[in-house]
Nucleic acid binder design. Sequence first.
DNA 1: ACCTGAACACCGTTCAAGT
DNA 2: ACCTGAACACCGTTCAAGT
Lengths: 184, 184
Amino acid sequence: MRYHRRDVVERAIEVLDEYGLESLTMRRLAAELGLQPSALYHHVPNKQTLLAAIADEILARGKRERRAAEWDRRVVEICAELRDAMLAYRDGAEVVATAHTFGLGASEPATQLREALRDGGLDGDLVEVGTRALLHLVFGHTAEEQAALQAASAGAIDRDPGGPGDFEQGIELLLDGLRSRVRR
Amino acid sequence: MRYHRRDVVERAIEVLDEYGLESLTMRRLAAELGLQPSALYHHVPNKQTLLAAIADEILARGKRERRAAEWDRRVVEICAELRDAMLAYRDGAEVVATAHTFGLGASEPATQLREALRDGGLDGDLVEVGTRALLHLVFGHTAEEQAALQAASAGAIDRDPGGPGDFEQGIELLLDGLRSRVRR
DNA sequence: ACCTGAACACCGTTCAAGT
DNA sequence: ACCTGAACACCGTTCAAGT
């Protein structure tokens, strides 16, 4: 059997979802594909790049149709889509958030948010600050939520998992600030 | 020589600051202390706990006097203190942010923010949502800023590092939303 | 209480060689 | 182009034993 890069990424997501990020090793993935570990380096230059590709694929799979007409409703829609996409896979939020911290992946959601804020009539500087703030909120909240959810299902009752209500409320707080800065 | 837990944490921070998070291994730290790796487990149950202790110590070392009288200026002050504390050590933001995602460390800053928001006259629910949103913004922004700074100093000109202006602007956006929700 | 020595069960990555 | 086989230089953690 001969594989291509997309096969490797797809199988990596299966391993991630079934066994978790700490079990997603290059050796484990190679074994899952029936390959020697060294064979993976023909498809991917290193593990970090593979994780960035996984992050992008997870977000791509969560894509939905845009419905909202108003720019601020569209922001909420984009953020909710991001959250749902990450929650769909075990440790999905951690993978995406980490990749984003190091400037990898998640470039498309950033572009969409930037567009929405620009449509809202915000200045160039505020578009950038707002986009980054929204992404940090979404990634931070979802990573914490998923960690709490997984900790809860593994035993400890720990803390409240946050939930979609808390999530939207946080986004709305930020949107308030953005709305009040629309030039008119 | 006999060590205590605090010696181990202190030396770990030195190793972190000098060689970076990826070089902070239990074996490396043990060698630095002139110990066998197994000796560390007398002071700390595992690496995760050590990292949480490092996160707390980094934040504790950055503590400053509170000056602002108004609740919203106090929020800005707390957030700026957190950012400075994390930026003071190599990979400090990543260590603190990761610990926070898993519900470890950073409990004191959370308490201080909660107090400030309560003083501002916000409802219990909003206090929680606001505190979490502020922390995600601070951790997310600072981690990204530090990663970009370190990438820049290592060669690539990559992206803009954000800076304190962008940071405060993001916090102010959120504060706008919080201010508008003060019950009166 | 704190530490050594040895082991267990792994990692990511490189590189010559094969088809 | 894609893969094997072998190696290099490491990991975190456990556990019996020592003082």
